[in-house]
C-alpha cells in the first residue's frame, strides 16, 4: 500500500475513534482502558512476522519475545475486561 492510502485510513480511523470513544459511558472508562490495552496488542502481528521469518536469528528472538509480551496483554486484557464487565449488573430486586 502506498503512503497516502495508509495515511487516509489512519486519519479516517482517528475520526471514527473520536466519535466512538465519546459515546462510551463514563461508567465503563476503566474497561475501556483495559480493552484498548488488549487491542493495541495487535502489534503482535509484527512480532509474528519477525518470529516466522527464519533468516535473521536476532530478529526472530525479538519477535518471539514480542509475541510473549503481546500475548500477556491480549489474553490478560480481554480476560480482565470480561471480568469487569460481568460485574456491571442491573437492579435485580423487585
Amino acid at each position: 500500500m502506498d503512503f497516502i492510502s495508509i495515511l487516509s485510513i489512519f486519519v479516517l480511523a482517528c475520526f471514527v475513534g473520536y466519535y466512538v470513544v465519546w459515546s462510551v459511558t463514563p461508567a465503563l472508562h476503566t474497561p475501556l482502558m483495559a480493552v484498548t490495552n488488549a487491542i493495541s496488542s495487535v502489534i503482535i502481528v509484527g512480532a509474528l512476522i519477525a518470529a516466522a521469518a527464519a533468516d535473521v536469528p536476532g530478529a526472530k528472538w525479538l519477535g518471539l519475545l514480542g509475541i510473549v509480551l503481546a500475548s500477556v496483554n491480549i489474553f490478560g486484557g480481554f480476560a480482565v475486561t470480561a471480568r469487569m464487565l460481568a460485574m456491571y449488573k442491573k437492579k435485580e430486586r423487585k
Binding site: A13, V16, L32, I39
Partner: peptide, 10 residues
Amino acid sequence: IITGALVGSS
C-alpha cells in the same frame, strides 16, 4: 493502523 488510531484517540 485502525487500532492505533482508536486507542490513540481513546
